[in-house]
């Protein structure tokens, strides 16, 4: 073993990375080389300083400050959750009510457009919204949507 190899093993020893057979090998070299023994002392000294410099104390307020800030995040997330859940639930109920005729009253897969609209009307009547349908009948004009008179006549037929 030369001194360069020895230095690597000395460093490994201080890092706790030396493997079985290397221990004896290094010891043998150190017993014969005064320069490497001095080097080994320096490594031991440096490694000890690194170990002793561990942060055995932390700023006393660290945990409290982190928890206080995390509490705000936690609170914000809870608030969003508290507001969002009822809002989503309300929207879902409203949507279900509006779309229920389509999904629950009749199977519309083989119905014409007119039959679907009639089914809508029946369902609106059934849930007490016939006045709304009346307004729809009287208030709606195809012309308002740019449909020609000829086409309107055809559609109405």
């Amino acid at each position: 073993m030369n001194c360069k190899n020895a230095e690597e093993l000395i460093a490994d020893r201080e890092l706790g990375l030396l493997e079985g057979g290397q221990v004896n090998e290094l010891e043998q070299h150190l017993s014969e080389c005064a320069d490497c023994r001095k080097l080994a002392d320096e490594y031991a000294f440096a490694a000890e300083a690194l170990k002793e410099s561990r942060a055995d104390t932390v700023p006393p307020a660290l945990a409290d400050e982190v928890l206080a800030k995390a509490g705000k995040i936690h609170g914000k997330q809870s608030k969003i959750f508290r507001l969002a859940v009822p809002a989503v639930a309300a929207a879902a109920v409203l949507l279900a009510v509006v779309l229920s005729p389509v999904f629950f009253s009749k199977d519309s897969s083989d119905m014409t457009t007119l039959q679907v609209l009639e089914a809508y009307a029946e369902d609106f009547e059934a849930i007490g919204m016939e006045d709304g349908i009346g307004d729809y009948d009287t208030g709606f004009r195809y012309e308002d949507f740019g449909v020609s008179d000829t086409l309107t006549t055809y559609i109405n037929q």
């Binding site: 460093a11 890092l15 000294f45």
Partner: peptide, 25 residues
């Protein structure tokens, strides 16, 4: 392993640089 070894070597050089080592000891 290589980075740890080189890191410790470099740290040792910096920490025990000329004059400081004997004083610190």
């Amino acid at each position: 392993k290589t980075r740890l070894r080189r890191g410790l070597m470099a740290f040792k050089e910096s920490y025990t640089k000329a004059g400081d080592y004997s004083e610190l000891q």
